[in-house]
Design a protein around this nucleic acid. Structure first.
Lengths: 220, 220
DNA sequence: TTTCGCATAATTGTATACAATTATACTATG
DNA sequence: CATAGTATAATTGTATACAATTATGCGAAA
């Protein structure tokens, strides 16, 4: 898991990002280079680089000569992302049906198999991890650098919400069933079906979130 | 035009990005911090920050302890982007039809009016600039931070191709007619029509590129 | 008491210094 | 002549120093 080929700067970037996405750093909080550097045991330089990158990702807002502030994730952000994903995950699955390799198919099958196991045990942490892997693999299988880039960013962005939705045993099981159906379509290289199922998968997720209630999912 | 509220680092970022997108820095070229810094009259620090940001955008590939290399834009990249845009610009226009303000509508009308003028004079530089403004305004009008982020990145990414397509007087005129129709739909707040027209606009663009021939548009 | 002004502190922006890693060139050896 | 090994140079990674800008606190004046 822990790729050790990363530089210090890259690690700092990931840590800060996780702290924002997990909610440790709250919305509008000021991120001071010195404090974060001391907290992580590094100098300001790698922290600065990380903050500049996070600004580009939209997670941080930098006001020149003033400071860097955490950009909060609103209810609307989540809604928008899922509506965008509904359209793009369909196209992604369509492409994947055309270009997926044997190895990637094997990987997907292993993931849904394992997820089935962990869903029954109610192991949310593992489920989120496997959900990440499933979608990452699917995005890669599209054979499109751009598709991968966009979708993995968005998918990562909403990880806090997914952590909540996957605590429901029923939803976790249903979600994995949908994953299985997508894998079947990919195996048959049925692009049209894969597109439909992937798009439907996002819709189901949104419906589930509506059931749970948005106020539980996100504060703002 | 030249926003002066930017820091040195931000300017360096934009300059390097333009140099990649315009083709001044060629694919796989190594970008050395020292050389670029000297070229721009700054130290390595802001150059490093810019390169890290460009890596996140996918324009540069950084190999730790080795160097930063320009990631080339391939024919497939462009094709993928236009297929993604076909889906997203539709959704964007749909949202814009619901949320666009009077000011934004006025701005769009002014843009298409000016573009009509410059299309007749064959002023490609101005046309590209106005095409940028049109889409930027449309993306903003969607009222979605995420939609704006994704689409403006992609739109910017393919600017070199657009510079070529808009040299055709006919295509420039046609493109602007399509813009006008989209504006009309937005004025009537006709979401369904706006979506259809925006999606069709991207399709027309791709058809036009097919006519021109991809080898003219991009080397790889 | 409130508010303005100013000195001081804190923070960011940029440059430079030093460490670690990688590339290069030259020499010795087979 | 080819190649391995090594010293040197070049480049990146990180820390620190200094400059520029912004925030803070305190005292004086209304």
């Amino acid at each position: 898991m822990s790729e050790d080929n990363h530089s210090l700067g890259a690690r700092v970037f990931h840590i800060i990002r996780e702290n924002i996405l997990s909610g440790k750093y709250t919305a509008n909080e000021e991120l001071k280079e010195k404090s974060i550097g001391e907290e992580l045991g590094v100098s300001r330089t790698p922290v600065r680089e990380a903050l500049r990158q996070l600004e580009l990702e939209g997670l941080v807002s930098i006001i020149p000569n003033k400071g860097a502030y955490v950009v909060g994730i609103t209810k609307k952000d989540i809604r928008d992302i899922y509506e965008i994903r509904e359209r793009l995950e369909g196209l992604c699955a369509k492409w994947a049906a055309l270009y997926i390799t044997k190895e990637q198919l094997d990987e997907l099958e292993e993931i849904v198999f394992l997820a089935d196991f962990h869903a029954k045990k109610g192991n949310v942490g593992q489920l989120v991890e496997l959900d990440n892997k499933f979608h990452e693999t699917l995005y890669k299988a599209s054979g499109s650098k751009e598709m991968y880039h966009v979708l993995s960013d968005f998918h990562h962005y909403v990880q806090r919400v997914r952590k909540i939705t996957l605590t429901s045993e029923k939803r976790a099981a249903d979600s994995n069933k949908e994953h299985m159906m997508i894998v079947e379509a990919l195996k048959e290289h049925n692009a049209e079906l894969a597109e439909k199922l992937a798009s439907q998968h996002i819709l189901s997720t949104v419906e589930n979130m509506d059931r749970i209630g948005w106020d539980v999912l996100v504060s703002q």
